[in-house]
Computed example of a mutant assay.
Amino acid sequence: MRRRGFFALAAGAVVLAGCGGEGAPAGAAVDRLFLLEPAADGHGWDGIARRLASVLVRSGLARTVMAVERPGVLGSAPRDAFVVPGAPGLAGDAGDAASGASGASGVSFAREGRLLVTAMPMVAAAEIANTAAVVEAATPLARLAGDWTALVVPAGSRLRAFEDLAAALHRDPAGLTVGGRLEGGSDHVLYGMIGKCLGVDTRLLEYAGYLAAADAAEALRVGRVAAMLGSARALLPAISAGRLRPLAVSSGGRIEGIDAPTLMELGVRLEYSDWCGLLGPRGMSEGDRQAAIALCERLDATPHWRALCAANGWSRVFLGGDDFRRWLSTETGRTRGVLHELGLLTSSDTTCWGSCVRRP
C-alpha cells in the first residue's frame, strides 16, 4: 500500500468587511467573525473559508470576517484550532470548555464569533491521530455542502463496467490498485466501504493516495493504478471529453453529465458524499450555540451561497444543530470502523487512548 503524508499544511489569512448585502436575511449581523480552516492540501475543501467569508459579508450576515488557515491542527484536538495567536481580543484559548464563550472570554457570539470549517478529512484525521473525536471536542453546528464521488477508469480499460471491477476484487482483493486523494481521506474511506459492501476482505485492498487529484489522474493515465476515485464535478470535463469512463457515482441519484449508475443501482447499498460543515468551540453557551446555528441556517438560505454551490457542483445538504450532532456521531463511528478495517487503526474502539492507532 502506498503511503503519502496525510498532513501537508499551509497558512494564510484574509479579512473581509462590508456594510451588509443586498436582500440580506432578517436578523442581526455578527460584528466580527473568525472563520478558521485547518490548512491541508489535498482534502478537497482547500480555501473554502475564504469563499464562505465572502458569502457571509456579501449577504450581510457578518460585518467583518477574518478567514484564517490554521496550519498544524489537522489531526490535533479540534479545540486547538480555535486559538488564533496574536489576534486582537483573542489572547486566550477560546476553545476551552471552561470559558463557555464563542469569542474572547465573556464576549457573545453576536459581537465576536469563531467558527471552524470541518469536513470528513478532519473526522478521519482525529481518529488516525488518536485525539478526541471531532463531535466530542467541539460544538457541532451545521453540515453545509457535499461533493459526490465518481469511480472512473481510462477509456481503454479492460474494466468495462462496475461489475468487472467487482469481479476482479472478488477474485483477488489485492490484484488491482485504486487511486485517489490522500490515504485515510474520503476517497480511501469510500473504497473501503465499497469493498465491505461487496463482501471482499477490506484489509487486502490496495489503495494509492496522492496529495493532489492531478497526481492521481496522472497515475491512472500511465497505468500505475487501475481505477480512480475522485470528485465527480472535478472529473466531469475528462469524462465529457471521453478520456475517462465512469463506472459508478456515490450519489443517491444520477449526476447530470455523467452516464454512470449509482452504487445503489448496482446493488451496493451505499450513498456517500465528501462533506463540509461548521463547528463552534467546545463549551459554547446555549445562547451562543443557538445564535451560531441560526447564522448557519441563514447562510444556507442566501442566494450567494446557493450560487457558490451551483458554480462548484456542490450539493446543499444542510443539517443543523442537534440533528447534525447526531449525524456526525454516527458518521464518525462509520468512518472509524472503515479505517480499522483498512488497517489504519488497530482497533475500532477509540476509548483505548494511546494504543489504538497503528504506528509505523
Rank of each mutant, 00 (worst) to 15 (best):
residue 114 R to L: 08
residue 327 W to L: 05
residue 239 I to S: 00
residue 1 M to H: 14
residue 222 V to H: 06
residue 352 C to L: 15
residue 253 G to L: 13
residue 202 T to K: 05
residue 207 Y to M: 02
residue 218 E to V: 14
residue 151 L to W: 04
residue 246 P to W: 12
residue 44 G to T: 11
residue 296 C to T: 04
residue 344 L to T: 04
residue 186 S to L: 00
residue 235 L to A: 13
residue 282 R to Y: 03
residue 34 F to M: 14
residue 102 S to K: 05
residue 115 L to E: 10
residue 316 R to L: 05
residue 191 Y to T: 06
residue 215 D to N: 14
residue 299 L to V: 07
residue 113 G to L: 00
residue 143 R to H: 07
residue 270 L to C: 09
residue 23 G to I: 07
residue 121 P to V: 09
residue 4 R to A: 10
residue 34 F to N: 13
residue 70 R to I: 09
residue 63 R to N: 10
residue 255 I to M: 13
residue 270 L to R: 15
residue 286 E to G: 00
residue 32 R to W: 03
residue 131 T to N: 00
residue 26 A to N: 03
residue 39 A to P: 03
residue 302 T to G: 00
residue 76 S to Y: 03
residue 262 T to N: 07
residue 292 A to S: 01
residue 222 V to G: 10
residue 47 G to Q: 10
residue 143 R to L: 05
residue 318 F to I: 01
residue 60 G to Q: 08
residue 124 A to V: 01
residue 71 P to R: 15
residue 240 S to N: 14
residue 6 F to Y: 03
residue 6 F to S: 07
residue 309 C to G: 12
residue 119 A to D: 11
residue 294 A to K: 06
residue 188 H to Y: 11
residue 80 D to Y: 05
residue 210 Y to G: 00
residue 202 T to V: 15
residue 39 A to L: 04
residue 23 G to F: 06
residue 9 L to G: 11
residue 245 R to V: 11
residue 25 P to M: 06
residue 322 D to A: 13
residue 254 R to E: 12
residue 255 I to C: 02
residue 118 T to R: 10
residue 188 H to E: 10
residue 135 V to I: 11
residue 240 S to K: 15
residue 108 S to N: 03
residue 289 R to A: 00
residue 89 G to C: 01
residue 33 L to G: 03
residue 170 H to A: 11
residue 307 A to V: 14
residue 353 W to V: 10
residue 353 W to Y: 09
residue 132 A to I: 10
residue 325 R to V: 06
residue 321 G to N: 02
residue 285 S to R: 08
residue 294 A to I: 09
residue 299 L to T: 07
residue 183 E to Q: 12
residue 196 K to C: 05
residue 273 S to M: 08
residue 314 W to Q: 08
residue 175 G to N: 14
residue 131 T to W: 01
